[in-house]
Design a protein around this nucleic acid. Sequence first.
DNA 1: GCTGATGATATGTCTATACATAATTGCATT
DNA 2: AATGCAATTATGTATAGACATATCATCAGC
Lengths: 238, 238
Amino acid sequence: MSGEPLSLHQRILGDIGAKIVSGAWPPGHRIPFEHELTEQYGCSRMTVNKALTQLAKAGLIERRKRSGSFVARPRSQAAVLEIHDIRAEVEALGAPYRYERLSRTIRSAGKPVDEAAGFADATRLVDIVCLHFAGEAPFCLEERLISLDTVPEAEQEPFETIAPGPWLIGHVPWSAAEHTIRALAADKPTAKRLGVDAGTPCLAVERRTWTGGRPVTHVRLTYPGTSHALVARFTPEG
Amino acid sequence: MSGEPLSLHQRILGDIGAKIVSGAWPPGHRIPFEHELTEQYGCSRMTVNKALTQLAKAGLIERRKRSGSFVARPRSQAAVLEIHDIRAEVEALGAPYRYERLSRTIRSAGKPVDEAAGFADATRLVDIVCLHFAGEAPFCLEERLISLDTVPEAEQEPFETIAPGPWLIGHVPWSAAEHTIRALAADKPTAKRLGVDAGTPCLAVERRTWTGGRPVTHVRLTYPGTSHALVARFTPEG
DNA sequence: GCTGATGATATGTCTATACATAATTGCATT
DNA sequence: AATGCAATTATGTATAGACATATCATCAGC
């Protein structure tokens, strides 16, 4: 296939990884000691160490001092979920993208929904509702809160031409994020905004972001119907 | 907080990572050369190299020969999505778990759905439908295809007491997986099996797995209503 | 001005060595 | 038999040096 010259530690990593995913080395099996691999590959210990360290970080093996390294038991399946920019998503579908701000208010925190959103300690918020269109059809409803304690610059931004997502990316690098994905039935106001019947199943993605332990934003993206799907891929080595 | 002694390359990684996520070093900013960091931290080049290599693998920086290392532009947001064992999920909710096989047939491939599932080249399949219960209530409907070309042992397994998921984990290590998550309305047979009204929004997770390029299984897990949510977390350093 | 050779430079990889750390084994003492 | 100490052993981390490789800048020649 692709004949890129592999570095030695990559080859070692691949060899051992293949033994594990093929089942030749079952969970619990002891991997050769570093000094054995050193002999086997005719290289220094640092090189095999690099490979084994990476395998350990990938969760394929478990390392124990004095005992050796062992094939890890498969735990929960993990996948990398990529959440793209909505404009890019729409344009990838070949449809023209349009953004429309429905409302923007500044208010003090205190609603029950604020606490659920992780803004229990926040004092002032920007509360934005907006729509993303693919062509003529609503593609996604965005309901967002931004903490003015963490992002005071947001008070000056009207969000009329730029969507809050891209604006935040350019202004506040986040250090942690959490996504929650669920299916729900569109309630009346949501259905009206999305141009579907009330009760239509929607995919709701909620994202909370922090920077340095402080909450930045909470957003709920509601995609109507069955048109939208999230895809996540996983391979042990990446 | 927790006073674990950090290793030197971890400290370097953390220092640089903090500069990036705090915005002090914006995208495009050139990171000090390895030999500069070597001086700054009073350590060898291998140590700073280890830190920078990890930052590059995490996607925070981009390395170019002859030019140096640069803060990467934030691309799409990525999150690690953990998909747990259904039994573990149910038991984590404090409910008793029960598994029930509804049907199991062996048939040759050829239905249009088989091709969509990635079994275009498969010849014979096991087709299983089963239900996972949390207490008395249906928790999840599982519709699964297993390729007998890749997993011939599955022909002997009735899947009456053990669910296909755990059985496969124990018999076929997978090397790649893909998840697709969407919202859909329960159709009549699905609704009946899940004990909800037809049209109820459901979260559908489809998972395809391969081992060494060969398709292993395709499964569609349908979770009724808004009870179930998937959670994904992300921090740049992990 | 354009092209191509040359050298400089930063990263990529690897070696040989060293000491630290954790855990297990085995011996010796109580 | 139970306890405690020491030796052994495998991994964790770090060093100083080496050569390879990709790429950019410079300068000579056309």
